[in-house]
């Protein structure tokens, strides 16, 4: 198995990811059963965590992972209805290193948000 990291995750970062996963998994589950009002605040909270996790990964030289967490933050803001912040974060993710297929996905996610903003 390859080790793609330049520096390992710090304890603080792993704890932040752990807290975020708890919140995000709850948001996803509650959304599935249609409890959208409670889920909305959870999406926002998860987005906030993701937004802060990304630059911590940048600092560790893990730009690819950081970009994925920006995509996750954007997706969470989009779910919470904060489309403008989602747009900013999708754009930020696109400015970083991404695989070709991921870049295409993000461009489509961004287009959907821009359409929603213009409608």
């Amino acid at each position: 198995m390859k080790n793609l990291t330049t520096k390992p995750n710090t304890k603080v970062l792993k704890e932040m990811m752990s807290q975020k996963s708890e919140i995000l998994s709850k948001a996803q589950a509650l959304s599935e059963i249609g409890i959208s009002e409670t889920a909305e605040s959870l999406w926002l909270s998860a987005a906030y965590y993701e937004e802060h996790i990304a630059p911590m990964l940048d600092l560790l030289g893990r730009e690819l992972e950081a970009a994925v967490h920006r995509i996750s933050a954007a997706s969470c803001y989009e779910k919470a209805g904060d489309i403008e912040r989602a747009v900013n974060l999708y754009r930020a993710a696109l400015s970083g290193p991404l695989q070709d297929n991921t870049r295409l996905d993000v461009q489509n996610m961004l287009s959907s948000c821009l359409e929603a903003l213009n409608s």
């Binding site: 792993k14 990811m17 996963s21 995000l24 998994s25 996803q28 996750s72 996610m109």
Partner: peptide, 12 residues
């Protein structure tokens, strides 16, 4: 070990 969850579009 520790699993991290991210949101990617409509999927976990």
């Amino acid at each position: 070990g520790q699993l991290d969850v991210t949101n990617y579009g409509d999927r976990a």
